[in-house]
Design a protein around this nucleic acid. Structure first.
Lengths: 176, 176
DNA sequence: CAAAATTACTAGTCGTATCTAACAATTTTC
DNA sequence: GAAAATTGTTAGATACGACTAGTAATTTTG
């Protein structure tokens, strides 16, 4: 009884989205957003209501309870982390990334999600990686752009680091 | 009719595994491996048989058809890529990684999976990243091990690259 | 304000996947 | 080789989540 199905998680997510975008969530709009019939929505809303995740009265718009809000936030967070990873790091096309994130979000465990977040941050903040490293990866994916001079690549990496250190710590004169 | 449910994919995967490990897949073993009742297995086997993915005769062990073998291989591949990423890169504990890979494998699209493979390979082969970079990430996850000297880190990165270049440019007499 | 249009709910059906219980076939064991 | 144990199948129930069709409530509109 306490387990939340993928399906209900999707409904909750849509309600969350409609509430923030439209400022209210009507059954019709939920049906449109989910691409299902209104009868299916009624059914889902009754279940979400039973679980105390939404305030639901027939013929009036749906609102999230505090508990529902927490749950929805958690799901949206999962979605965002996955989408960002797929889109920003793997360069997956937005629609595909969106779609896949939407499916994976129901199945990834907390530990993996949390570590994925850290991983993404590490790639962006470690001086050995960062934006240009990611671009090199993207080029390597597109066949015609394999790296040619690793030595130079690493050196410029070092230079950027030095520049940053100069900027932030000792104001030494920039000589390169 | 042509869509394969996550559930049937799981059955196929278990059959594949039992066939290779046990050299045969019996309904009882499938039930044990999946943690379901034998009646559920019968049901699943009938469906897989209808789709032409397994050779199924009551009271004898199950074998994969060529088509079933291809499908199973594809699923196992997805599983492996995801498991490796979770375990090797994110350092997720084996059991958790196993479990999560098992769920995600049914939902990730081909493009993302393919790119994830390339991403993993790029991390391992790019001189700016590789094994030690990954270890630095792992340390950064364990709180007490943040990096301290990025400059040195990058320099040793460059040195390793130079060493490798020397190795590979010199004619290696030992190889036959 | 009443008819028309929209929106929402209920009931019944289908497909998937599970279970239990009862029964059938096949092996094991004595 | 017959009784016992194991293994496999069938039938019927439950739960989920979708659908359609019919009905009811609420808005919109004239």
């Amino acid at each position: 009884m306490d387990h939340m199905s993928s399906n209900l998680e999707d409904y909750l997510e849509v309600i969350f989205s409609l509430e923030s975008v439209n400022s209210e969530a009507r059954a019709k709009d939920i049906a449109d957003a989910m691409g299902v019939q209104r009868a299916s929505v009624t059914n889902a809303l009754q279940k979400l209501s039973q679980r105390g995740l939404i305030n639901y009265q027939p013929y009036s718009s749906v609102t999230l309870t505090p508990e529902g809000f927490r749950t929805a936030t958690r799901i949206v967070h999962r979605h965002k982390v996955l989408y960002d990873f797929l889109h920003t790091f793997l360069q997956i096309r937005p629609e595909v990334a969106e779609d896949t994130a939407c499916k994976l979000e129901h199945h990834i465990d907390d530990e993996s999600l949390e570590t994925l977040t850290k991983f993404a941050r590490f790639i962006m903040t470690c001086p050995r990686t960062g934006k240009d490293w990611l671009e090199a990866f993207t080029r390597s994916c597109n066949e015609r752009g394999a790296c040619t001079n690793c030595s130079e690549c690493i050196k410029s990496c070092l230079e950027r680091l030095d520049d940053k250190c100069l900027d932030s710590s000792e104001p030494r004169s920039k000589t390169s």
